[in-house]
């Protein structure tokens, strides 16, 4: 699904990612953990195609294509989805309009007929139940005036509607209370699929109590310093990130299967 090789990337003049290697196979859920400033969000942004990040070397292969050669919208249509850490508010653009335009852009790309308003509403209302969202949110502007929890739920709703092949969830747990976290996790879990891969980017182990990853990677100073199974997350929870300093100079670690 996704093969990242020796990825280096900078924001401005500052190198942030310093040689990331990661392989994610279809159906796998990978958690990427790490302290603030370790490069977690930069990695999410590189995958989604944010322009403020410059890839200086390395490669990303997604379903056999060179992901870095694709524009932001081309990645989305090819099935890459980023659930934002801070979803932006877009006054004046209706939530339902965006959902429909996004889904139809993708369907068109795949040579499928566009859904009409009735078909679309039936689909989206179904997905809203899953996210325990009120239908009135469809008719509000994108994220405008949404609470933190509503924004995150709206991200997962978009994911549920778009059914991506590769979803990157950037700090999806931040700012969520426990009830909202459960709803979001439930939504994500229901989207697990043998053909769908997920990357959970998170600072805390808490999210992983609700979404069980297959692999956990620890990112520090722009490199993956350790990889393991879910137990690694618990270890981190106990020890914090302080021990990482000792290992950053350690051996190259590649992961996945």
């Amino acid at each position: 699904m996704l093969i990242i090789k020796d990825l280096h990337a900078s924001v401005g003049d500052k190198p942030i990612l310093k040689g990331i290697n990661l392989t994610v196979n279809a159906g796998e859920v990978h958690a990427i953990m790490g302290p603030n400033g370790s490069g977690k969000s930069t990695l999410s942004n590189v995958l989604a195609g944010r322009e403020n990040v410059t890839v200086t070397s390395g490669s990303i292969e997604y379903l056999g294509q060179d992901l870095l050669a694709l524009e932001v919208e081309e990645r989305a249509r090819a099935g890459v989805f980023l659930a934002f850490q801070y979803p932006v508010e877009i006054p004046g653009v209706g939530n339902v309009y965006l959902l429909k335009a996004a889904l139809n852009a993708q369907r068109k790309h795949r040579g499928l007929p566009e859904l009409d308003a009735m078909e679309f509403l039936a689909l989206v209302k179904d997905k809203m139940k899953l996210m325990e969202m009120n239908e009135s949110m469809l008719y509000r502007a994108v994220n405008e005036g949404f609470s933190g929890g509503e924004k995150k739920r709206n991200e997962i709703l978009q994911m549920a509607v778009l059914e991506p092949r590769l979803a990157i969830l950037d700090e999806t747990d931040s700012g969520l209370d426990i009830d909202a976290l459960k709803i979001v996790a439930n939504g994500v879990n229901s989207l697990r699929h043998p053909e769908r891969s997920m990357i959970l980017v998170t600072h805390y182990q808490r999210l992983l109590d609700y979404i069980k990853p297959d692999y956990v990677h620890v990112l520090a100073a722009g490199r993956i310093v350790r990889s393991g199974g879910p137990e690694l997350a618990h270890e981190l929870e106990k020890q914090g990130y302080a021990w990482i300093g000792n290992e950053t100079s350690g051996q190259e670690v590649s992961s996945g299967s």
């Binding site: 524009e71 990645r75 778009l162």
Partner: peptide
């Protein structure tokens, strides 16, 4: 720019 990126990240040209 953030709004533009958000819309594009959902597949809009």
């Amino acid at each position: 720019e953030a709004q533009l990126f958000y819309l594009r990240s959902r597949g809009l040209d």
